[in-house]
């Protein structure tokens, strides 16, 4: 197992090299596919250094919002602002270098690569090695790779407790571990804001709790703003600072978890009735599964 023999000078607290968390605001975003309005006038924001959850029934437009934010879809109207900068027209790679990282609903790891290489890929946009240096693996290229390896090992792999799988190809890993590797890769991007699309979907109780702990740690220790889409109400209510509810492509409620829980419109969206008590019961039931 590779470990450096001397204490590394790079072992410093996260905030020294990481940029400050970024705020994100979605302003009046409308998205049309042909005649269908997937999103209409969606407005919400994620405060720097907080956890914001976007929830809503299936087909409410949660993933569409994410795809607009990360640049796969271009909104028909409205703006996406990252720390006051309009990013609506930027291509995804550009947004990545501005500090936006995301994970996918159905894991988008590179199956042919090892865990380590997958994580290293996250740093791509911040590295400088050019073709000629790469060809000869000349000074700067070797130094950059070594520094990256050190950072990935000591900062990310240790933090997410995945050192035992670092040299395995991702295709042999369990679902929960793959999700964790995806998080690791996103962290390697040195994100200022992290978009998590259903980070605990399909996980068992224990894996969900691990992931919740990691998400909280990322927010607190790494100082990263987190925006997530999630169905697990227990998780959402536990760790979010702010919740936005979507239904049929519109924001129907927004506020602190407790406020949203009490909102009759939210209950109606989920249950078709306006009874907050029934919703509470159902949320409690979901939290227990």
């Amino acid at each position: 197992m590779p470990k450096s023999t001397t204490p590394s000078p790079h072992l410093v607290s996260a905030q020294d090299t990481w940029d400050a968390p970024a705020g994100l605001s979605v302003e009046d975003v409308t998205l049309r596919f042909g005649g269908i309005k997937a999103l209409s006038g969606v407005t919400f924001s994620a405060q720097p250094g907080s956890i914001t959850a976007v929830i809503g029934p299936n087909g409410a437009g949660k993933t569409s919002v994410f795809n607009c934010i990360s640049g796969f879809y271009r909104p028909s109207s409205g703006r996406i602002m990252l720390d006051g900068q309009d990013v609506t027209r930027l291509r995804p790679p550009r947004r990545a270098t501005l500090g936006m990282a995301r994970s996918f609903q159905n894991i988008a790891l590179f199956r042919g690569m090892t865990v380590l290489d997958n994580i290293k890929l996250g740093r791509h946009g911040h590295m400088k090695t050019n073709l000629l240096q790469a060809f000869f693996y000349a000074g700067p290229a070797a130094r950059e790779e070594e520094a990256l390896r050190r950072e990935v090992e000591e900062r990310i792999i240790d933090f997410l407790e995945i050192d035992h799988i670092r040299n395995m190809p991702v295709s042999v890993l369990s679902y929960g571990l793959q999700k964790r590797v995806e998080l690791a890769r996103a962290l390697a991007m040195r994100p200022r804001i992290l978009l998590l699309d259903e980070p605990v979907a399909g996980m068992n109780r224990e894996e969900t709790e691990d992931m919740a702990r990691f998400i909280l740690d990322v927010k607190e220790e790494w100082g990263v703003t987190i925006l997530m889409v999630e169905h697990d109400m227990g998780l959402v209510m536990d760790i979010s600072d702010h919740v936005t509810v979507l239904n049929f492509g519109q924001v129907i409620a927004s506020g602190k978890p407790a406020e949203v829980q009490a909102d009759p419109q939210v209950a109606a969206a989920y249950l078709g009735s306006g009874d907050p008590a029934a919703l509470m019961k159902r949320l409690a039931a979901e939290g227990a599964t």
Binding site: A96, F110, G112, T129
Partner: peptide, 23 residues
């Protein structure tokens, strides 16, 4: 061994998510 080669493999394996990583 460098970022360029890794980016190539990323494009081969899933080219859409490669974009999100800044490639």
């Amino acid at each position: 061994r460098t970022r360029i080669g890794r980016a190539f493999i990323a494009i081969r394996d899933r080219d859409i998510s490669a974009e999100v990583l800044g490639i």
